[in-house]
Amino acid sequence: MEESPMKFLTPAIVTGALLFASSAMAATGEYDNMCAMGLSLEKKVETDCSVNAEIDGKTYCFGNETAKTLFMKDVEGNLKKAQSFYDDNQ
């Protein structure tokens, strides 16, 4: 009985699929993946963290590109507001 060539390809296909899936996953960020701009506006907005920015080695998530753009206009001030609201609402 002849062995199927698929038997030997299966591990490579599975490994490739896993690598692709892991690279396509969204980031994990601060504040339990809530939108940092939303928190700075005292709102809890859950995200999948596909829109994010790295600031001082930490990943911050945003609900959309507009929220990220607004947040980046005053990073220091928005981080303070977001952290304060997040800490008060744990």
Rank of each mutant, 00 (worst) to 15 (best):
A36H: 01
T59R: 14
E3Y: 07
T10S: 00
K80T: 04
C49P: 12
L18D: 01
M6N: 10
G38N: 02
K7E: 02
E46M: 10
D74M: 02
V51I: 14
I55Y: 03
F71A: 04
M34I: 08
T59H: 10
T69A: 13
K58I: 10
T15S: 08
M37A: 08
S23H: 11
G16I: 03
C35W: 01
S4T: 01
G29C: 03
K68Q: 15
G29Y: 07
C35Q: 04
N78P: 01
N52K: 07
S84R: 13
F71N: 10
S22P: 07
A27D: 08
K43W: 06
A17F: 11
K58C: 07
C35T: 00
I13A: 04
A36I: 13
F62G: 15
G63C: 11
D88I: 05
E42L: 00
V51Q: 02
D87P: 11
S84F: 06
G29D: 00
C35N: 03
E46A: 15
V45P: 00
T59D: 08
A26G: 05
I13H: 04
E65W: 13
T15I: 13
D48A: 13
E54R: 14
A36N: 07
E3P: 02
A53F: 09
F62V: 11
M37P: 05
V14P: 00
V45I: 13
F71R: 02
T28F: 08
I55C: 10
K80H: 00
T15F: 12
D87M: 08
D74P: 15
E65R: 12
N89G: 00
A53K: 10
S22T: 06
S50G: 08
T69S: 06
E2R: 09
A36V: 03
D74L: 13
T47P: 09
S40Q: 01
M25Q: 07
E42I: 05
Q90E: 02
D74G: 11
D88F: 00
E2A: 11
T47R: 15
L79V: 00
N64C: 04
F71G: 02
